[in-house]
Design a protein around this nucleic acid. Structure first.
Lengths: 244, 244
DNA sequence: TGTACATCAGTGAACGCGCGTTCACTGATGTAC
DNA sequence: TGTACATCAGTGAACGCGCGTTCACTGATGTAC
């Protein structure tokens, strides 16, 4: 029962990792839709049927890669938040987290495309992916929660049409936060990935050059959108100036 | 020289359209990476080599689909803006345009994925695509321009680090607008597609339900971010309340 | 108006290649007594 | 400690299928005189 396992078990772990590593390499060249078991096996010096000892089908290998990618970007976000220096500077904590997600995306563009790009046709993600997929979002929620506990967050009231959805969303993902904040969070979450995707997928080519500066600014505006401010507003939270 | 052409020319136009239509259908089933000339030909009752009379290669067919898609979504945005009822309600004009883009995306999800999803591996977009690709952005710029001409737009000053990039961007795409507005526009443009992509690519599954209401709200916030306000601020534009 | 020639859409065979998955098998590792 | 048996990683052949692109060709449409 110690961590020392038999040769079989150790080999299995290593070969499984090698298969996933090689598959990740192939994402780069061919993309998820064309990920090929045979090509992976060939590169590993195995016969293609041997892979079936590790993954029951091509789709299961894809699922493993997707789960790993979500976990990796989620961990990057969690680490960035844990290492943010000033526990009271909530906008800085937000921006640091967003930048960590972007940095992971820039260093793992093909894994990023796998999880945040167009869905792979004919593949439907199983339930195993939903937990890992939510990690980044949970980090963003926790930043808003810290800020809310420290100073409160005030945002303008929601439009009437949105109120039912806002309450549903709130009770589902963050019952302790004001609905307006939850709605802003979901919007900021998706907008964050809009910024990263445009940069990564080439829409910024020949347009935005200083992408670090641009992203930092945009992430800061998103922090502002969810109501994060550097200093607690004195007295009422409404009606303070537009940008902290 | 009239519009009546010979049988050959008419046939060529029709067959070209039929090929593209069938290819669009196949995007749905297989995705861009697996778009297959042979499958298209088969469905059309032609032999695969016949397609080479119309498109010199698979990539050229893809390019044609991409250009068509950019043109379609660009036209949708332009039409929505042209049909917006109140010429002075700039936030409403913005939101109507954003909603038209989203509506096009929802009715053409596979063409949307083709242009705003992960790039097709091994395919590099030729220069023909850059003009059509910029149409939506140009519409958004024109809304900001209208608002700026009517009332002026005031946004808080840019961080120093961003100023060089902001000026470069501004002189490149909208020299008549304040740099802070241009930066906000580029951000809002990419964030708009973040919202649409998350909805379309399944990140909102089991999360956001009333997507129309959610989107309308988010688009309205983007309008606010680029400085569009329903009524011109009296006197100075700085320091007005956070949300109009 | 009629004829000779040029253009070009579409054919069918071929080249050389790739894919996911199944199946009976060999032989090494692990386990129970 | 030694032996018999079970487990399972990896093999190699096969099934049935798909792909992009080239090439010499047929036959209909279009054009110049």
């Amino acid at each position: 029962m110690t961590t020392i396992r038999g040769a079989r078990e150790r080999a299995r772990i290593e070969v499984t990792a090698a298969i996933k590593d090689e598959a990740r390499k192939q994402l780069e060249a061919e993309g998820a839709a064309k990920l090929s078991l045979r090509a992976v096996a060939r590169q590993l010096g195995m016969v293609s049927s041997a892979l079936y000892r590790y993954f029951p089908s091509r789709d299961d290998l894809l699922t493993a890669l997707i789960v790993d990618a979500y976990d990796a970007v989620g961990a990057a976000a969690e680490t960035a938040l844990a290492n943010a220096p000033d526990p009271d500077d909530h906008p800085a904590r937000w921006t640091a987290t967003c930048s960590a997600v972007r940095a992971w995306a820039l260093t793992h563009p093909h894994e990023y495309a796998l999880i945040y790009g167009s869905p792979v046709p004919g593949y439907t993600a199983p339930m195993d992916t939903v937990g890992p997929a939510s990690r980044v979002g949970l980090v963003l929620i926790s930043i808003a929660r810290e800020a809310h506990c420290a100073n409160g967050i005030a945002l303008p009231p929601l439009a009437d049409e949105l109120r039912p959805e806002a309450h549903r969303l709130t009770s589902q993902i963050a019952p302790d936060l004001p609905p307006a904040v939850v709605v802003a969070l979901v919007g900021a979450w998706s907008q964050l990935f809009g910024l990263i995707s445009f940069e990564l997928f080439g829409q910024f080519n020949r347009l935005v050059e200083d992408r670090d500066a641009f992203f930092a600014q945009a992430a800061g505006r998103l922090a502002h959108e969810v109501g994060l401010r550097r200093r607690p507003a004195a007295g009422t939270h409404r009606g303070s100036s537009a940008y902290s």
